[in-house]
Amino acid sequence: MGFKLLSKLLVYLTASIMAIASPLAFSVDSSGEYPTVSEIPVGEVRLYQIADGVWSHIATQSFDGAVYPSNGLIVRDGDELLLIDTAWGAKNTAALLAEIEKQIGLPVTRAVSTHFHDDRVGGVDVLRAAGVATYASPSTRRLAEVEGNEIPTHSLEGLSSSGDAVRFGPVELFYPGAAHSTDNLIVYVPSASVLYGGCAIYELSRTSAGNVADADLAEWPTSIERIQQHYPEAQFVIPGHGLPGGLDLLKHTTNVVKAHTNRSVVE
């Protein structure tokens, strides 16, 4: 069995187990497998329904001669939608809004960016022009300005110390501490036991640490421990890039980060 097929099978099995364990909360999309990078042309966006009122959005972007996937989250909030992270750029984010209108038909009224990198804030200006209120932590807003990236308009308070959590509509926002970046936030959907790890969490097929220019490698494993301790009931975990899975993604990420750190020390 090929690795790609095995990865998709694991996603399907995880979703099936969740649907059985929580039949009222989960209505997993039966329309197909989780979209992969090879299936999404740059400039297009796919939506994948995880649970009743919960979707991931998947886009792709060219970077350094390669094409990478990027995940975000959409959560229903009454007759409105909360968006977590842009679709990595203005063109993708405009396509995301169009796809949401086509498939869901509810307005996106608020959006949260989970850290300051372009795959999370690139497209904020498109959201703002569409009347979406954009939010991020003060740290993310400051770092985005320093980096020359787009800056969300509103500040999220109460997320300055490791372990801080605040309720934001249908989700809980959690600051686990520094990891992929010093400002990275985690998003949890309690009604569906869905954990969105953003770039602080890796997919299972990833074996290298990737972009760690703004990471705190020493603190990252401790931050992941905080996530595990705060959300032990999480059933569906979405990484910032690639295929979702279960809580095993947290341990896998820790292993990859520690291996990278150990290699760096040896070198």
Rank of each mutant, 00 (worst) to 15 (best):
P170G: 11
L13Q: 11
R167A: 07
G122I: 15
L47R: 09
L81R: 00
P107R: 12
G105Y: 10
G105N: 05
T134S: 02
P107F: 10
F174C: 14
A209M: 13
V257Q: 02
Y231I: 01
F168E: 07
R141P: 15
T14Q: 03
A98S: 03
I224F: 10
V67H: 11
H230T: 03
V256E: 13
I227Q: 01
K102A: 08
S22R: 06
L195W: 00
G158C: 07
P23Q: 12
Y175F: 03
I20G: 06
L159N: 13
E39M: 07
A87G: 12
V37D: 10
S27A: 09
V11N: 09
V67Q: 03
R110E: 14
S264T: 11
I224P: 02
Y175N: 04
S70H: 02
A209T: 05
P41Q: 09
G89W: 02
D52K: 07
L143Q: 14
S56D: 13
E150K: 04
I58G: 06
W55N: 12
A21Q: 05
L83D: 14
V112S: 01
S193Q: 12
G198Y: 04
Q103H: 10
A90C: 08
P138V: 03
V194Y: 15
S38F: 12
V37F: 08
S113D: 01
N255H: 03
V121T: 00
S191Q: 05
G242V: 04
E33P: 02
G122T: 11
L83K: 00
V265D: 08
R167L: 09
S113Y: 14
L73M: 05
A15K: 09
E80H: 13
E267A: 09
S113V: 04
A215K: 11
L13K: 07
S223F: 14
A192Q: 14
D164L: 10
N262W: 10
R263F: 01
S161C: 09
A87K: 00
L250R: 03
H180M: 01
A179Q: 02
H117T: 00
T222N: 05
L24N: 04
I74F: 04
E101I: 06
G53Y: 03
T109G: 12
V256G: 13
R206W: 13
G122L: 15
T261D: 03
P239Q: 03
N149H: 00
L73R: 01
V237A: 07
L250H: 04
V108M: 05
I17F: 02
E101R: 07
A234P: 01
G245I: 04
V194F: 12
P221D: 13
A133V: 11
K251C: 15
T134M: 12
V171E: 01
D248K: 03
G197L: 07
H117W: 00
S208R: 10
T36R: 06
G89D: 10
A94P: 00
Y175Q: 04
L97Y: 01
S205D: 07
Y196N: 09
S208N: 02
F3W: 10
A234K: 15
G210A: 12
R167M: 03
G43D: 09
C199I: 11
D52Q: 12
G169K: 12
D216Q: 13
R263P: 04
G123K: 02
N211I: 04
V112I: 05
N211E: 07
A19K: 00
Y12H: 15
Y202V: 08
A51P: 04
H180A: 00
S30I: 07
H117C: 00
I104Q: 01
A133N: 15
D118R: 11
G78H: 04
L204A: 13
R120G: 14
V126C: 05
H180P: 00
G105F: 04
Y135S: 15
G72A: 07
V37Y: 07
G2Y: 03
S30H: 14
I104K: 00
G2V: 08
G158E: 11
S191W: 08
T114L: 00
Y135A: 07
E225I: 00
D118N: 13
V124C: 03
R120V: 07
D125W: 15
S264L: 10
D214E: 09
L47C: 04
E39H: 06
E44G: 08
L47A: 05
L250Y: 04
W88G: 02
L5M: 13
D119E: 01
R46D: 07
S181P: 01
E267S: 05
G177M: 05
A111W: 03
T86L: 07
A66M: 07
D216N: 13
P190H: 00
Y188L: 11
K4F: 01
V11I: 06
G32V: 02
G131E: 14
E99I: 12
I74N: 02
G2C: 04
S31C: 11
T93Q: 12
I104D: 01
D119I: 00
I227W: 03
P107S: 08
A192K: 13
R141Q: 04
V266A: 07
S56G: 07
E44D: 10
V266N: 03
Y196Q: 06
K8D: 15
G105I: 15
Q61F: 04
L249Y: 05
D77G: 05
D118S: 14
E225L: 08
L24G: 05
T207F: 12
A209D: 09
I40F: 04
D118F: 15
D119V: 08
L6N: 15
V121C: 12
P244F: 12
V166W: 10
A129S: 13
D64H: 14
D52W: 05
L73H: 00
I201S: 13
E33L: 10
I100T: 07
T60I: 15
R206L: 14
V146Q: 08
L47G: 08
P176G: 14
P239T: 11
P107Y: 05
Y34C: 13
F174T: 07
G148I: 08
G78K: 15
H230K: 03
V132A: 12
P152L: 09
V67G: 06
S137W: 14
V124R: 13
D64Q: 08
S62T: 06
G2I: 12
G246R: 05
A129R: 05
Y202A: 13
P138S: 09
N92C: 09
